[in-house]
Design a protein around this nucleic acid. Structure first.
Lengths: 241, 241
DNA sequence: GCCGTTTCTATTGTCGACAATTCGAATTTC
DNA sequence: GAAATTCGAATTGTCGACAATAGAAACGGC
């Protein structure tokens, strides 16, 4: 009889009948955990425990972790193992600074290269999103916020630029989510996004870039308090094992 | 008797007595190979062959490769394995575009935050390097070129910015080396670096940023021919197995 | 009671084995 | 002759085993 490569009747319940390769699955799962700080900052990550938790051996775990190391979501020390990344204000501020210049370049290129249809589609999509905003959970809202920026990055026609922004996004995902939940309504973000999109439609690069700059600066302004809030959540929510 | 974890009398000769951990060593080694296109573009990388070549098992090989995947030096497809990254003009151009905005930000921040001593040290170091230029091999020359930019990035006081620039540097290392060898004298690069450094000392941010911008633009200008030259080298030099 | 050793335990690093998949070549079919 | 098929060899995915290392605990000297 063949060895069951992946016990499809997994953990506790059945979203079975999903023939997802375990390699990628494990990677995605750990990545998600790291993004959401399911590991405490600087916590040492026990490979065997994690392997048991995900019903696999240590090999795929280690490969996924190594990959996350270069994504800066995980830290690694030889002979000591893997650790969760830290969580501090400086990092958020520094990332935001980089993000600012990349996003500015992003809008400028998008304005230069995107078609009228593409830009119109961006506006439409965001308008619809705004209209439905109340029906979205914080998680969904955060995802839409991130998607707005990613769409622009894609329109820039520079995949490398887009990839780097995505990398930054995954690293600041947690604080961004906190921000969304803190304000909840997000109305300022909404109007700011709309303004940016409209500036893009009218091909006003300078204005769009400036709006984008300010848009990011605002959230950096109270990064301190956001991080504080984030730390509280990390160490208070023990809802998940 | 203990199992010899690593046959220290390696491949063919003896740089033995080096108790370097095999994990990091393997990673560095493969990384170097990828940077220099010792693998042909888009070539499939055979794990067992590579493992045999480096005298280790497949586990450390795979971990290193996974790590290089997020560095964009290696590509990966489930069930099909690892591949060398491609080698085309678009990528170089796109990376250079990103690099430009990051380097501009880098000088600006460095001018803002670096001390007089630090900037003076930069000028001095580059002056000395220029003086010794003739005694350097192309490889050493390339390294100095890269180091100049990295030093500025460090002076920016933003480690994230520096890290991203380093990432870009490793990806364009090959073409940069070609450029260095193509011009050999490098005199323009030399004077350009000097000018940038001097502008930094006089805290002229706009000028420094503009110089940096042009400095990079120049090499992008004939990226096409450089890449062509690079392709030739990759497929002609069969010096290494 | 505190600091430096020593011993023991938990965890990581690497390996070889084997199943699952893919690749390539030979073969057949149209 | 070209395209599809089949089958065998090569390669990848994952596992469990065990040595080497680090970390904790017990011990002893002061």
């Amino acid at each position: 009889m063949l060895r069951p490569r992946q016990s499809n009747q997994d953990n506790n319940a059945a979203l079975a009948s999903k023939p997802i390769k375990t390699g990628p699955r494990v990677y995605e799962e750990i990545r998600r955990m790291a993004m959401d700080y399911r590991f405490k900052p600087n916590e040492r990550i026990n490979e065997v425990a994690l392997a048991a938790r995900l019903n696999v051996s240590r090999s795929p775990i280690r490969e996924a972790l190594q990959r996350l190391v270069t994504e800066e979501l995980i830290t690694f020390q030889t002979n000591r193992g893997f650790f969760c990344r830290g969580f501090d204000v400086d990092e958020v501020v520094n990332l935001s600074d980089v993000r600012t210049v990349l996003e500015e370049r992003s809008v400028r290129l998008a304005i230069q290269r995107a078609t009228n249809e593409e830009l119109a589609a961006l506006v439409d999509w965001w308008t619809i999103t705004m209209a439905r905003a109340d029906s979205f959970s914080s998680t969904e809202l955060t995802a839409r916020d991130e998607e707005f920026h990613i769409r622009i990055a894609r329109l820039s026609g520079n995949p490398e630029l887009a990839r780097m922004l995505e990398g930054i996004n995954t690293r600041i995902h947690f604080v961004r989510k906190i921000e969304v939940e803190k304000h909840r309504r997000l109305s300022t973000t909404y109007t700011e996004h709309s303004e940016i999109a409209r500036a893009m439609v009218s091909r006003d690069a300078d204005r769009a870039a400036r709006l984008m700059h300010d848009h990011i600066a605002i959230s950096v302004a109270d990064a301190m308090s956001t991080v504080r809030e984030g730390l509280a959540r990390i160490y208070i929510d023990v809802g998940q094992i």
